[in-house]
Computed example of a mutant assay.
Amino acid sequence: MPDIPREQALAYRIAEHGLHRSAGEVTELPLLDLGLQDSMRDTALLSLAARLSTPVTPESLVDDDRLALVWSHRGAPHFHRRTELPELVSALVPLNDQDALSRMMWQKKELSDTGVSAVDVLFETARAIRKVVTRPMTKGAVSAAITKLIPPSFSRWCRGCGATHVHEQLMRLATVHGGVRLEAGQTPATLAPLEGRERMSTSPAPEAAARVLERYLRFNGPATPGDAAGFTGSARSCVTEIWPSDRLTEVRVAGRRTFVPTDQLTALENPPTPRGVRLLPPLDPFTQGRDKAVLVPDKARAKEVWKIIGSPGAVLVDGEILGVWRTKASGKRLRFTVTAFDPLRGKDRADLEAEAERAAAARGFRDFAVDWA
């Protein structure tokens, strides 16, 4: 079994993530094969700004009709190529009840108490969503409407809303099966029917699901089956059943038995050396890798990068996460506060300020400032 140094594994990931800025426009970015998460304010835009060689603007994603924003992996919103949605939806069909319950994540126990098969819960909710969403509607309006159509056990009392409504994670997982997307750039969250939506299928597609695992390993490998299961939200035992072992090679990274697609071995063995600075937003695909101890071995630093509430962005310097950053808007100015774990070289500080200018422009700010904590 080949032993891959940690630094080499990270250099490989950085190249596969497009952080060398080899792509000039969004649909050329290979990372879209897996999806680009957009869970926080401008997350996807800032992830693009760190990767594309051309300027990114607030309209770069919203106005691109080749993309669709849907609740996909783990029920999180991701941008995907529209042409790839049919296969994606097939891959998101749970393999069995155990898999469906695992994808419910923090609401797993409540939904297991319904007395109904978790797969049936998912698709009964999806049918209600398909019936309700025939035009753009706010998330709140959709939630209220489908709550009236589904059994009471699929809903809960929400103290924050002061109302009883469908479980949040259940709604997120069911929406794409109901042929519904999110309207990009809309506040409050707005749902709309997918153009040309196909008939709903409830049949598992193990091969499509296995390809998602393989793509995770391409961009965030070498990694373990558990890492891949953490990304998809699937039950670990279900991932083991569909593990595409005939297309993978086992290697060892930082003492762990991990896997990488066999057709990526050449890229893993000789990745380009990471150079320069990138500002990665919170929930960037690179820091979404499940093996956090490989990304940031120092536990104290890892706690600064991945906060339980309100994680900052990460400062990537020559392939290592060497600090964190936050922003605060003040009028027409976007102010960056950077906390470096170690003193940065003058060139790195200058490069960071250039990256801050790109990030500010992506969010529509012409003026910016960088404060060093």
Rank of each mutant, 00 (worst) to 15 (best):
R81Y: 13
R135T: 14
A126D: 07
P30I: 09
V180A: 11
E198M: 14
S234N: 10
R256L: 15
A205G: 12
A302K: 08
D246V: 00
R349L: 10
V132D: 03
L283R: 11
E353M: 07
V251L: 02
K148V: 11
L34M: 09
S203P: 08
L67I: 02
V253N: 05
V305T: 09
P136H: 04
M40C: 06
L36W: 13
R345G: 10
L48H: 11
D97Q: 01
L182K: 05
F231A: 01
R66M: 11
L45N: 07
R326N: 08
P188T: 10
R211W: 08
V324S: 10
G185V: 12
T164R: 15
M104I: 00
V180N: 06
P281K: 07
E214D: 15
S102K: 04
K148H: 07
F286C: 06
Q169A: 02
G233S: 04
K108E: 14
A300T: 06
S311A: 12
D33Q: 15
E357Y: 05
D33H: 15
D97N: 06
T337Y: 10
A163M: 13
F336Q: 01
D38R: 04
V212N: 00
T27H: 14
P188D: 08
Q186I: 02
T43A: 12
A228D: 04
G313Y: 09
T262V: 11
R127S: 13
V296W: 07
K131R: 15
W106R: 09
K131H: 12
G75I: 05
L283M: 15
R197I: 04
P55M: 11
L217G: 11
S311Y: 03
I242H: 00
P274E: 14
V251M: 04
P261A: 03
A359I: 02
H20R: 01
E304P: 02
R363F: 14
P58M: 13
G226F: 00
R275A: 06
V317W: 05
P55S: 13
A369Q: 00
W243I: 03
S203R: 15
A192T: 06
E250L: 07
W306H: 01
E84L: 14
D33K: 15
S72F: 04
C158F: 05
A91V: 04
L32A: 12
L352S: 05
R335D: 08
V324H: 06
Q107C: 04
D65M: 04
P55C: 12
A44Y: 14
P152R: 08
R172N: 14
H177R: 01
V324P: 06
L182Y: 04
L88V: 09
V93K: 00
P151W: 06
G221D: 01
E198H: 10
E110N: 11
Y12F: 12
F231D: 00
Q186S: 15
L170E: 10
M40Q: 12
A208G: 06
R103P: 06
L295S: 10
A360G: 09
P222V: 11
E124S: 15
F219T: 06
G276K: 01
G140D: 10
P188V: 13
V251I: 07
T147W: 12
G18L: 05
T202W: 02
L111E: 12
T134Q: 13
D97S: 07
A163R: 14
P222Y: 09
V121P: 10
R172F: 12
M104H: 08
T232K: 01
D246F: 01
H73T: 07
P204A: 06
